[in-house]
Design a binder for these strands. Structure first.
Length: 275
DNA sequence: ATAAGGCCCTGACCGC
DNA sequence: TGCGGTCAGGGCCTTA
């Protein structure tokens, strides 16, 4: 599941590969992938677009175009953005292909069809509801605390709420709560100042570590024909302290990690360390 | 305003 | 081996 670190890695990889390239043709195999505008209008409007700017907001990838429009991509569960060499054919589950002016192709591959692409003039029409970027200076512990005041949802659910902060998904939420020693079931409004401070720090810590590990496992050599998918085994996976480690010993105290469901999401935690 | 549940999807997995 | 049922899960939508 791509979360903030995986999306950040994608953007960093895509920038040098796509910068300056022009879209010459578009094939849309699954129209619902295109959120805005309609698929036919998208296919026409994207023609001639030149990629000039690359950034990220939460889990959204922002590909800025020379005409001022922005191509926004959300990978959701299984989305992947792949830069393919000239002549390559679309694999099963490829939903959108943009042909580039040098013959290469930009593929959007998405097994489960949850991913979405927008082509907009004003990015705020898509991003307006997002909370602060966890890694920016806008995300202070004071601001974080204000957003939790009076909240009666479990803190795990609030970490997943993109309006509170942008970019944390199920993996990093569990990891941050473990490092902060906070029970995921605790209601947001009941956290102490000290706990809010710790969680503010561990959220940033796990995201930064995720970006580091994504980057370090790239190797820089196997990327000619694709941008590596985020969150695959071999990188951060082995670093998880609690995520998907149900029944395995807590790395701190040895107590078996438990799994519960909160906010319809599997949640992993140490019942001894997190209270 | 906030919280909770359904929905979209497909492949993996489970039990028989 | 084959088959039906269940599950995962981000964000949006609806309901309470």
């Amino acid at each position: 599941m791509p979360e903030l670190p995986e999306v950040e890695t994608y953007v960093r990889e895509l920038a040098p590969q796509l910068s300056g390239s022009c879209v010459q043709a578009a094939q849309i195999y699954w129209p619902r992938t295109i959120a805005t505008p309609t698929a036919p209008i998208f296919a026409r409007r994207i023609l001639g677009s030149r990629f000039v700017d690359f950034s990220r907001r939460g889990k959204y990838m922002l590909l800025g175009l020379a005409d001022g429009m922005t191509l926004i991509v959300h990978l959701r569960m299984t989305g992947k953005v792949l830069v393919k060499p000239a002549g390559s054919v679309a694999a099963l589950h490829t939903r959108v292909v943009l042909d580039l002016d040098d013959g290469r192709h930009l593929h959007f591959h998405d097994t489960r069809k949850f991913g979405r692409i927008w082509l907009v003039g004003d990015t705020e029409t898509v991003l307006a509801k997002l909370g602060p970027e966890p890694l920016s200076s806008d995300f202070t512990r004071e601001d974080f605390g204000v957003r939790l005041v009076g909240r009666r949802a479990p803190i795990k659910a609030l970490l997943l709420d993109q309006a509170i902060l942008a970019g944390v998904g199920n993996i990093y939420a569990d990891e941050a709560l473990f490092l902060a020693g906070i029970d995921p079931k605790r209601l947001g409004g009941t956290l102490t100042d000290a706990e809010i401070g710790r969680l503010h720090g561990t959220v940033r810590e796990v995201l930064l570590r995720g970006i580091e590990l994504q980057g370090s496992s790239l190797g820089g050599s196997s990327l000619q024909n694709y941008v590596r998918p985020g969150g695959e085994p071999g990188g951060f996976q082995e670093e998880f302290q609690v995520f998907r480690r149900t029944g395995k010993p807590c790395p701190h105290c040895g107590t078996p990690i438990e799994r519960i469901v909160l906010a319809q999401r599997s949640t992993h935690f140490c019942p001894a360390c997190q209270s």
